[in-house]
Design a protein around this nucleic acid. Structure first.
Lengths: 329, 329
DNA sequence: CATAAAAATAACAACGTTGTTATAAAATAT
DNA sequence: ATATTTTATAACAACGTTGTTATTTTTATG
């Protein structure tokens, strides 16, 4: 027997409509009775019935997040952070691990107020629903019909290169997945190469392909890095996983970090703090990314402006213990 | 303007209660009118309102799955499979990535019909809700108040050892995370050791600790495996990730697989098919695991028997290309 | 051809809320 | 003291379904 506002009304000796107002903190009910009602509601263990509310309000205050195919830790962290960010708002979040279509159906069934979509490299034509959508990543899309939140990868690389250069490094390698269709990866490499050029540094021999995005790919790439005739004094790892691989390999080869070689990782997630050596990193902090996404979808829902545009967030460089001045040679 | 049963009624020229019955395929309405109603409903693009249904039915036909802290690919695959398994049923699944408590609150708010909980090593006392629960994994709990679905790890190892032994292997190593509090891992090692004993094989020098569960841990452990004076001809990898690491390391050292060394991996997920060399593996196929979990929660919901018990599922050995007869020595 | 029985449909009260309108009580002005 | 405004509470109609009961229509029966 769940307790309803009618039950509360009986106990508190008022009408159920008054209870409803009291629970919604309406100014139409006297402060004293409001308090009394709230108290008895609590005592009786009242839990509002979402379905009933939804039926009249037409709002669910629920956002659906379409979780892409199983992904790397960075995305998982982002999901967690988004979920947390929603806790500050009246909205809750539910997840679906299905395909875009099935997930959309489920979410429509639930009548979610909005959806967050993690775009895959090739954005499957998101059927033009009349439901607010915000996408994360892949801003290649020229004329999106919904806002896209993305990180400014170009700027990340500029900051990373600039930072290392200021520390005296001239041979700065980029180790990441290069030979790919993946726009995200390509943007990073391009950013790196542009930055190197601007700083008047040689990039040709220092762009190293991991041919993959896993830890292991970073690990094995270190061989290539070290065998290069143009041995770098600093390395930019293309992702959290890759950088972890690099770090391990470097450690195993007894390199002093950061004395002998500096390492900076792309991605800015809390886990960077707890790597073997806490890693200096560059990227939009997930927390900010999450907040921005949450903010965007809520704005999209609550105002009906058609603000379909790409938001490029600026990264921040977080200094930890894997970068130091270039070794004297 | 969403279309309701009343709208359909008007168009079809019947009462809305008849429409309701027709849509629910009730025998109380004539076949002909039923067809007509169904047709107009479709034409008008009718979508039932879950909230309204829920309000009167008291059932949501939704299951909440509490997604544990960021996990390995095997668990992610399980989640995907569970989601798929629900597609065959009237139920849908939603996910929460929050802590047990917050997730439970969200799910209660949605009035889910049941919950699936991935138990963590130390099952946080799942507050005794009056909502059906089914847990996956960790059957250490002596007197659970809800069914627990788990794999029979002991038997997995028996099968693996038996299989390899039959192929002529006598030096069979187990490479996994051993020195841990993790019950799951411990059960695997114990299973291996018991099996070895039963087969009269030496296990002492062949139980190798990876000290971790990552790809890399398997990769590095191979050194230990090879440096052992008692070099094994077959290796049982403790998990998908670990086995992948082992496989890579073995490949890099130019071992012929399975001619020179056999490898069998714990876990039975489709991804085993697409490793560098398709891997022979032992474990309860995720699909079956998923189906069993889905079945258990639905049964729990639909019958009110108090069947709180541990279900240990039996593993199957899937032969692929990493195991072969022991090399003649 | 009435009449009872069966079959098909319609009417209506739930479900637990919210929001609007009506009424009662209290406060203020005349 | 009475009329008038203000404030507080109560009543009630939605919302879109389902399930039960009431009514109509059809079919079978004597």
């Amino acid at each position: 027997m769940t307790v309803t506002i009618k039950d509360i009304a009986k106990v508190a000796g008022v009408s159920y409509s008054t209870v409803s107002k009291a629970l919604n903190d309406s100014p139409l009910v006297k402060e004293m009775t409001k308090r009394k009602i709230l108290r008895t509601a609590k005592e009786m263990g009242y839990e509002p019935n979402l379905a009933a509310k939804q039926l009249v309000r037409k709002k669910t205050e629920v956002i659906g997040l379409i979780w892409p195919t199983i992904e790397r830790i960075v995305l998982a962290t982002l999901v967690t952070n988004i979920s947390k960010a929603f806790e500050e708002t009246p909205y809750s979040m539910i997840l679906s691990v299905d395909t875009h279509e099935t997930a959309m159906d489920t979410f429509k069934k639930f009548q979610v107020d909005g959806m967050i979509v993690f775009e895959e490299t090739n954005s499957t034509a998101i059927t033009q629903e009349n439901i607010p959508i915000v996408a994360y990543g892949v801003s290649g899309n020229a004329e999106p019909s919904y806002p896209i939140i993305d990180a400014n990868h170009e700027d990340s690389m500029h900051q990373a290169v600039g930072y290392l250069h200021k520390l005296g490094h001239e041979k700065i390698a980029y180790v990441g997945h290069i030979d790919t269709e993946d726009t995200l990866q390509l943007e990073k490499v391009e950013g790196y190469q542009n930055a190197m050029e601007q700083h008047g540094l040689d990039k040709e021999t220092l762009t190293i392909d991991t041919a993959g995005l896993d830890w292991f790919d970073g690990y094995t790439a270190v061989e290539k890095v070290l065998s290069s005739k143009n041995k770098p004094t600093a390395v930019i790892g293309g992702s959290y996983d890759i950088s972890n691989g690099i770090l391990r390999a470097l450690q195993e080869k007894d390199f002093q970090i950061p004395e002998e070689i500096s390492l900076i990782s792309y991605d800015n997630i809390p886990q960077m703090e707890t790597t073997e050596i806490p890693m200096t990193c560059i990227g939009v902090p997930v927390q900010i990314l999450a907040e921005e996404i949450v903010h965007a979808i809520i704005k999209r829902i609550e105002t009906d402006e058609e603000t379909a545009q790409v938001h490029k967030l600026f990264p921040t460089l977080t200094e930890r213990h894997t970068c130091g001045p270039a070794p004297a040679h």
